[in-house]
């Protein structure tokens, strides 16, 4: 699992690659922690190289989304693999993640 955080034209693009399972989600949480404190941040998640996401890792993603929104920012997922899309669909999160 690898998290790449880049800032382009005022948008923070968070790309997650590899697999987000029980073991790697703790690392993911540490990687995104600084972003959860920032005010008025526009976050775009690029999950086009995320091969797997356990339902446990969803909690972290949801908490991340909530923190960003609470701080006046916006959160959206721009790209996603079919496997992860299935997880979002099953858990009913697609509507909240792909609001735009």
């Amino acid at each position: 699992m690898k998290t790449i955080i880049e800032e382009k034209n005022g948008v923070v693009v968070v790309s997650v690659q590899g697999e987000l399972d029980t073991d790697t989600s703790a690392q993911f949480q540490r990687d995104i922690e600084p972003l959860m404190e920032r005010k008025d941040t526009k976050v775009e998640m690029d999950l086009s190289k995320l091969e797997y996401m356990s339902s446990k890792a969803l909690r972290i993603l949801v908490a991340f989304q909530q923190a960003v929104m609470r701080n006046g920012g916006s959160f959206s997922i721009t790209k996603v693999t079919d496997t992860v899309q299935e997880v979002f669909d099953m858990t009913g999160l697609s509507a909240s993640f792909f609001r735009d």
Partner: peptide
């Protein structure tokens, strides 16, 4: 948001509802 229940080898029709 739970996994799909199976009936006789076919998955049950389950609407996507939030966990």
């Amino acid at each position: 948001g739970h996994t799909r229940t199976m009936v006789n080898g076919d998955f049950l029709d389950q609407d996507s509802q939030l966990l």
